[in-house]
């Protein structure tokens, strides 16, 4: 955490320069100026020293957890599995362990998520349910545009694990359908994810896919995604 503060202080020192740099991005949308690695220092840190990953998947090793969630598929290039331990009294997440199949940023974003929900004595489940991919991105110090989809699975795996905790503890009424509808059945991408992508400026199916990875494997959902994009653009920007 101390590290992150240091970085933000640095950027405060030269704020004008930083915002200006955005206008000078290369045509591929990736800029490496002022970087000494492919990703932010925080991403690098979490990729090389991942926190909270689970090595002991034996039955006894898993006994201590009371919720688990799995999202993604190896065919798509990303799979995430979370195990959580919720304190039933305080409803705080005491542990969050994980395994991830994916690229550097996928591994780093799962690691960061596990830190976010367990730091400072643990996050309450109601709060944890509200975590968005954008929250994780922020803590990572950002990701290159074409890597953003790597961070979108963590919050879904977390919600799946919390729902599993509700089920295991007999609180069936709390299992969230969340009013969200799963659109992409392979990756578990919801209408809300698509809405977020539109709010962030994605205008076409391709742009939404770049942000969310929707429809890469679940091709059947593409028409529905197109409709949703149309709907959200009218809703938020009054445009067709």
């Amino acid at each position: 955490m101390g590290k992150k503060k240091k970085i933000s202080k640095k950027s405060k020192a030269k704020p004008a320069k930083k915002s200006k740099a955005l206008h000078f991005q290369s045509p591929d949308g990736i800029t490496t100026l002022g970087q000494d690695w492919f990703y932010s220092p925080t991403v690098k840190e979490h990729f090389f020293k991942p926190r909270n990953f689970l090595t002991n998947t034996s039955k006894t090793g898993l006994k201590q957890f009371n919720g688990t969630g799995l999202i993604g598929s190896a065919a798509c290039g990303d799979v995430m599995r979370l195990w959580i331990k919720v304190d039933p009294q305080t409803e705080k997440l005491k542990e969050c362990k994980w395994q991830t199949f994916g690229c550097g940023s996928a591994i780093a974003s799962t690691s960061m998520l596990s830190v976010m929900v367990t730091e400072n004595g643990g996050m309450k489940v109601e709060e944890a349910l509200k975590i968005t991919p954008q929250d994780i991105l922020k803590r990572l110090g950002g990701l290159p545009a074409r890597k953003i989809h790597c961070s979108v699975l963590g919050d879904k795996a977390l919600r799946a694990a919390i729902n599993d905790y509700f089920r295991q503890s007999g609180q069936l009424e709390r299992v969230r359908g969340e009013g969200k509808k799963v659109i992409d059945k392979v990756l578990g991408i919801t209408d809300e994810d698509i809405e977020h992508a539109v709010l962030e400026g994605a205008k076409t199916f391709e742009e939404v896919q770049h942000k969310t990875k929707v429809g890469v494997h679940d091709k059947a959902c593409v028409p529905e995604v197109m409709q949703l994009i149309h709907y959200y653009r009218r809703k938020h920007f009054n445009e067709d």
Partner: peptide, 30 residues
């Protein structure tokens, strides 16, 4: 069971430069 880009990033730390056909190293998602 592992993804190519992650291997490349680790190899890079040893000064070994290779490449991968994983989706994460390409410009599209496939």
């Amino acid at each position: 069971s592992i993804e190519g880009e992650a291997v490349l990033l680790k190899l890079n730390e040893f000064g070994i430069y290779a490449s991968s056909g994983s989706a994460c190293t390409s410009h599209d998602l496939e």
